[in-house]
Simulated assay, not measured.
Amino acid sequence: MSPPKRHVVFDVVGTCVSFDAYYQRIDAVLGPRLRKETISAQHFGFTWQTAAELEFTFLSISGSYKAYKDVLRGLFYRTLYFCGVAEPRAFATDEERDECIDGYSSLELRPGCRECFEVLRENGFTVWCFTTGDVERVKGYFDRAGVDMPMENFVSCDDVGVAKPALPAYQAVWERLGASDVKWFAAAHMWDVAAATKVGFRGAWSSVYEQEPCLDVFSDAKMEVVAGSLVDMAREIVRRS
């Protein structure tokens, strides 16, 4: 009997790629006006994406799933209002909103992502990506960086029709892999890894995005690896497998 296959499923945006280019695009388009309102581009960008993630999840839970990019677009003016802009539609235009959203297409891989994948593949792991984004855009991050990531190894919440962190989303990926295979889920979002472990994935978290694991909040997470860099996380996965 052949030995079980080994897999690591990665979150992409926030984990393999950073949000820096998105924040930089917002600053280029709206930065001077935002600063007059004492709002930094990064703070607005984080608030906007977080609001979109919240509504994206709520829509999925209520049976009204919409693609994340459409939710992000729809919440632009509301987020400006909650950040303190009294008249959002006089503050920015639809064209400027879309320019800011285009910043998502320019996101770049984090330092160490290439080596992280190399460490895993050299030790017999198959690397997968599970994302809330559309696959064509997300695959482009790897293509531009010259990092091999086969299209067939991408799974999107758009394919599943359920948003993370709903457990059926992870279950769909779990069932795609062999029943007796070794399956890890790796992310820089603690909520993401914590949810994946509930369907059986072995959990690995990197601090490259959130910095603090907040394990008192995620106290029921079955976390086997808590690491600093992506490379350190990969090496720990190999060591514990």
Score class of each variant (00 low, 15 high):
81 Y>F: 13
40 S>R: 12
120 L>F: 00
72 L>R: 04
1 M>Y: 11
80 L>A: 04
93 T>C: 06
18 S>T: 15
217 V>D: 07
178 G>Q: 06
238 V>I: 10
28 A>Q: 15
99 E>M: 15
177 L>G: 10
179 A>S: 14
143 D>A: 14
37 E>P: 01
53 E>N: 10
22 Y>C: 13
48 W>K: 07
89 R>S: 11
82 F>A: 12
214 C>D: 10
81 Y>L: 11
101 I>D: 01
102 D>S: 14
13 V>F: 10
104 Y>I: 11
88 P>F: 05
103 G>L: 12
222 K>Q: 15
166 A>D: 14
236 E>V: 05
118 E>A: 13
140 G>R: 06
3 P>N: 14
133 G>H: 03
196 A>I: 04
11 D>K: 06
89 R>K: 11
160 V>K: 01
174 W>V: 01
215 L>E: 13
6 R>M: 15
130 F>A: 01
169 A>H: 10
121 R>H: 06
44 F>N: 03
174 W>Q: 06
47 T>G: 11
220 D>I: 09
131 T>Q: 04
58 F>P: 00
204 A>T: 08
138 V>Y: 02
134 D>W: 13
222 K>Y: 02
227 A>F: 09
184 W>K: 03
13 V>R: 08
230 L>R: 01
224 E>L: 12
228 G>K: 12
213 P>T: 07
95 E>Q: 14
146 G>T: 09
167 L>G: 02
211 Q>E: 12
166 A>M: 15
102 D>Y: 10
25 R>V: 09
115 E>N: 04
174 W>C: 08
202 R>A: 05
79 T>R: 02
216 D>K: 13
218 F>T: 10
89 R>H: 10
90 A>G: 11
14 G>C: 09
167 L>F: 09
126 T>G: 07
67 A>Y: 07
89 R>W: 06
182 V>P: 08
9 V>A: 03
233 M>S: 05
47 T>L: 13
2 S>Y: 11
136 E>L: 11
105 S>N: 13
129 C>Q: 09
208 V>H: 04
65 Y>E: 05
135 V>Y: 00
106 S>H: 13
28 A>D: 15
76 F>S: 11
201 F>D: 00
6 R>C: 13
99 E>L: 15
234 A>G: 08
203 G>R: 06
3 P>S: 15
169 A>I: 10
116 C>Q: 05
40 S>G: 15
85 V>L: 05
151 M>S: 13
117 F>C: 04
86 A>D: 14
95 E>M: 00
224 E>H: 10
189 H>K: 07
6 R>Y: 05
229 S>N: 09
108 E>A: 14
128 W>G: 02
153 N>W: 04
82 F>V: 15
